[in-house]
Amino acid sequence: MDKIGSLEIGHSHVKDKDFSIKREIVDDENVEVTFSHRHFFYAVYWIHEGNGTHTIDFEEYQIIPDRIFFIRPEQVHFLCTEGKMKYSALQFTEDFMIPYSVDFQKQIPVCKDLKEDEKVRIRTLFNQIYQESVSNLVNSTAIIQSEIHTLLLELERIGINNSATSIIPEILSRYKSFIDSSFAKERQVQYYAGQLGVSANYLNVLTKKHFNKPALEMINERLILEIKRLLLRTDNDISEIAYKLGFNELSYFSRFFKRHTGSTPHEFRNMMNKMYQK
C-alpha cells in the first residue's frame, strides 16, 4: 500500500461511492485528511474562510478566501491550514462522468481566484448539485452529471478568460495527453510527433511558442513529476522505481533526476519525508 495513501471518495482505501458534495464544511476528515496523499477521484475545493498553504504536485499555493482548487487523480497534495478552514467540496470519479466523456486535461486551472460574477455562477451550480443530491427525485443522477459537466465548463472558461496566454492549440492538448499515457515507455519527441501527424521540428516550434519550452522538456517534466510522486508516496526501493519507469541503469536514473532537480532521488525522498510526513 502507498505509504501516504491512495484514497477514494470519503478518504478511505475502499471505494463505496462515485460522487460527493459538501457545502461550507470545517475540517471534515471525510473530505480532506491531514497528511500527504493522492486521490483516485477529481475534486473541486472552494475556499470560503481560512489561510495556509495547499501543496499540489510539489507546487505550493496559498489558501485564501474565494480561491478554488481543481485536483486530478494521481496528484499528490496536502492542505496545511493555519487554524480552521471553511470550504465547499465536490468530489467525483471519472466513471461517474462517463456519459459526458469529458476531457479533464483541458484548460481547467489548478487554482483560480474567483471574481464576484464568477462566484455567483459557481455558487448557483454548487447549490443546484447539492439540492439535486438530496432530492431523491427521478433522474437525479443524470441531472447531477449534467450540472457537474456545466461546472467544469465554467471552470474551464474562467481559466481561459483570465489567462494571459493565447488559447492552446488542440494539437498541444493532444501532445500533453499522449505524454501522460506514454511517458514511461516513450521519451522521444519523434514518436509523439508521428502520433500527431506532424514533424518533430514543427511540434518543437509550437511548444516553444505556447509553453516557452522545447517539446522534449515537456516529456522530461512529466517523467520527473512521476519520479517525485513515487519517491514520496511509495516505499519502493529507488532501483524499483527506476526499473518501473524504464531506466535500465540506476546510475543513469540518478544522474537524470539530479540534472533536472538538483538533488539525488535519495536526497529528495529524505527531504520530502521530513516536509510531508510530520
Rank of each mutant, 00 (worst) to 15 (best):
L137D: 03
V138L: 11
V138Y: 08
N139C: 04
N139R: 11
S140M: 07
S140G: 00
T141E: 14
T141R: 14
A142I: 00
A142F: 07
A142H: 06
A142Y: 01
I143M: 06
I144V: 09
I144A: 13
Q145M: 03
Q145N: 00
S146H: 02
E147W: 02
H149P: 00
T150H: 12
T150A: 15
L151H: 06
L151D: 03
L152Q: 00
L153V: 00
E154K: 15
L155I: 10
L155Q: 10
E156H: 03
E156K: 01
R157Y: 07
R157Q: 14
R157H: 09
R157G: 08
I158K: 06
I158P: 13
I158F: 12
G159P: 02
I160T: 01
I160M: 04
I160A: 07
N161F: 05
N162S: 14
N162H: 14
N162C: 11
N162V: 01
S163E: 12
S163A: 12
S163Y: 00
S163R: 09
T165I: 01
S166P: 08
S166E: 14
I167F: 11
I167C: 08
P169Y: 05
P169E: 05
E170V: 01
E170P: 10
I171K: 14
I171D: 11
I171M: 10
L172R: 05
L172Q: 10
L172S: 03
S173L: 12
Y175V: 08
K176D: 11
S177P: 00
F178K: 14
S181R: 15
S181V: 13
S181M: 12
S182H: 15
S182A: 11
F183M: 13
A184P: 06
A184V: 15
K185G: 06
K185I: 09
K185F: 13
R187F: 06
Q188I: 02
V189L: 14
Q190D: 13
Q190K: 15
Q190L: 09
Q190Y: 10
Y191N: 07
Y191Q: 12
Y192C: 05
A193R: 09
G194M: 12
G194R: 11
Q195P: 04
Q195A: 13
G197Q: 05
V198T: 11
A200T: 01
A200Y: 01
N201W: 06
N201F: 06
Y202W: 13
Y202A: 03
Y202P: 02
L203D: 08
L203R: 14
L206I: 02
T207H: 05
K208H: 10
K209P: 02
H210R: 08
F211E: 05
N212G: 08
K213N: 04
K213A: 15
K213I: 10
P214M: 11
P214W: 07
P214L: 10
A215Y: 04
A215F: 05
L216N: 15
I219W: 12
N220I: 02
N220P: 01
N220E: 15
R222T: 08
R222E: 06
L223Q: 13
L223V: 05
L223D: 05
L223K: 09
L223I: 07
L223P: 04
I224Y: 14
L225Q: 13
E226Y: 05
E226D: 10
E226T: 07
I227Y: 13
R229P: 03
R229Q: 04
L230Y: 08
L230R: 01
L231C: 02
L231Y: 01
L231W: 03
